[in-house]
């Protein structure tokens, strides 16, 4: 039941975004830019949950972002804007608590 409610609410946000041509970061507060394979910029990051050269786990509020790759390093982390350098293999969203 809860699962269904959540899906509905998300649908409404998505509908609003599509209906009024609003960029998703307005509601979700998250914006991710990837420049090639070596530069990633995440806006709306509140915390680094895991940091290593192979994997970074970032807290985006309701979402979590996993960045996998080689020689990863945090180029900057100011006012919720986080830059990641290195060789990026994958970027994926994760739901639920980080373990």
């Amino acid at each position: 039941m809860q699962r269904r409610k959540k899906d509905k609410r998300m649908g409404a946000v998505e509908w609003l975004e599509r209906r009024f041509d609003i960029t998703p970061d307005v509601f979700q507060g998250v914006r991710i830019e990837i420049c090639g394979q070596h530069r990633l910029l995440v806006q709306g990051c509140t915390k680094i949950l895991k940091y290593s050269e192979q994997e970074m786990l970032l807290d985006l509020g309701k979402l979590r972002l996993r960045v996998c790759g080689e020689r990863l390093w945090c180029t900057s982390f100011i006012s919720g804007a986080l830059g990641v350098g290195g060789c990026i293999d994958s970027v994926s969203f994760i739901e639920g608590e980080h373990t």
């Binding site: 915390k47 680094i48 895991k50 940091y51 290593s52 390093w73 945090c74 982390f77």
Partner: peptide
């Protein structure tokens, strides 16, 4: 040490400490 990386970087973000150039040599940041 790398083990403190998240703690230190989160601290930087929270306190508004700007760093420019980082880097790591495997064991340290």
């Amino acid at each position: 040490d790398f083990a403190y990386a998240e703690q230190v970087l989160n601290l930087c973000m929270r306190e508004g400490i700007v760093y420019l150039d980082g880097g790591s040599d495997g064991a340290c940041l």
